[in-house]
């Protein structure tokens, strides 16, 4: 738009010099006004400036949101760490999270988060990438037109519904396969698998966009050398789109870490320092939901502690998102 504004100015000046246009649009005339001897210098337009200022404020609200998040999380976290029961060493060194008896070690929540996310990635990354390759390289147009909306439906289902799915179908299924003694009623594996299903559409659509952005000339060159469809897809197109696919993977990890309702419903309540995916464990997000769902008094150590967890979560997802954007910028293959 930066080009059109001076252009508009020029257009206005040219027209005013010739005087009002006969039979011109009514609205055009109010904009121009004036007779033959009108002043040709740029007039201050108060309303236009006000509107522009208001629109700028609208854009600035997003920055305010970020500042608000940083301020809120930072302030409450500082209050949390200012508490004599807590210090950074205990927070990052302890393996027990029991606010009631003053144990504030973040590790049980972090390990549960990473376990659920890892299970999710084991499900989502291969399936998502395969779907992306199929849609971009194999599927005929008509199949694509059917499959894409189905994936969009999958992406549009609220996460609480996925949580219900994890608890009422995935958990009984896992308990049926691996035995009721091994798999607890609440477990990170079932939550993780369902998070994986939830992020499949994200992985597949972002990767597919990256794959389709690879110019056709590369594919034709590959076919021309006698490569099969698979060889073209995996050895030519995929490496060329690798930055986009990697970015999709990282965004998916970030999404899985921040996922809340599925783990709140299916992964269990109560921090548990375990590395078995079949046992109940509470993730960072699950803990925040459970604590804030109860009666929470302001300025209690519980209240402050969830903001400290929130800050960690925010920094984690933010850095992952930044990493994915950096990968796209740094490693993008340009074919012009």
């Amino acid at each position: 738009m930066s080009r059109s504004a001076p252009l508009a100015q020029a257009a206005v000046s040219a027209e005013t010099m010739r005087g009002p246009v006969a039979g011109g649009d009514r609205k055009g005339e109010t904009a121009l006004g004036g007779g033959p001897q009108m002043d040709l210098r740029r007039k201050p337009r108060v309303a236009e400036t006000l509107i522009q200022g208001f629109l700028f404020l609208c854009g600035a609200i997003s920055v305010l949101t970020t500042l608000g998040i940083v301020y809120v999380l930072g302030r409450e976290s500082l209050l949390f760490f200012a508490n004599e029961e807590v210090n950074l060493l205990k927070f990052f060194g302890g393996t027990e999270w029991q606010p009631a008896i003053g144990r504030f070690g973040i590790w049980p929540l972090v390990t549960a988060t990473f376990m659920a996310s890892m299970v999710a990635m084991v499900v989502a990354l291969p399936i998502g990438l395969c779907i992306a390759i199929y849609l971009s390289e194999y599927a005929p147009r008509r199949t694509r037109n059917i499959l894409k909306p189905i994936l969009e439906v999958l992406a549009g289902i609220p996460t609480v519904v996925y949580g219900y799915f994890a608890l009422t179908l995935m958990t009984p299924l896992l308990r049926g396969i691996f035995g009721r003694d091994l798999v607890e009623i609440y477990n990170t594996a079932s939550a993780g698998i369902v998070i994986g299903i939830l992020v499949i559409p994200l992985v597949s659509s972002m990767s597919e966009d990256a794959l389709r952005a690879v110019p056709n000339t590369l594919r034709q060159a590959s076919y021309g050398l006698g490569a099969t469809r698979l060889e073209t897809a995996v050895r030519i197109v995929l490496p060329a789109a690798l930055s986009g696919v990697a970015a999709a993977f990282i965004v998916a990890i970030s999404r899985a870490i921040g996922e809340t309702m599925i783990v709140a419903i299916a992964a269990g309540a109560g921090p548990n320092f375990t590395f078995s995916p079949f046992r109940a464990a509470e993730t960072m997000t699950g803990h925040i939901v459970r604590i804030s769902g109860g009666d929470l008094s302001y300025d209690s150590i519980d209240y402050n502690s969830i903001f400290a967890i929130g800050l960690l979560l925010f920094l984690l997802t933010l850095s992952l998102n930044a990493l994915s954007q950096w990968i796209v910028r740094r490693f993008r293959e340009e074919y012009e």
């Binding site: 608000g68 999404r255 921040g258 929130g310 925010f314 997802t317």
Partner: peptide, 16 residues
């Protein structure tokens, strides 16, 4: 900033 905000987990907005 807007692009980054779209990636912030929804629970963080709840805390805000």
């Amino acid at each position: 900033n807007i692009n980054n905000l779209a990636g912030v987990p929804s629970i963080i907005y709840g805390m805000l």
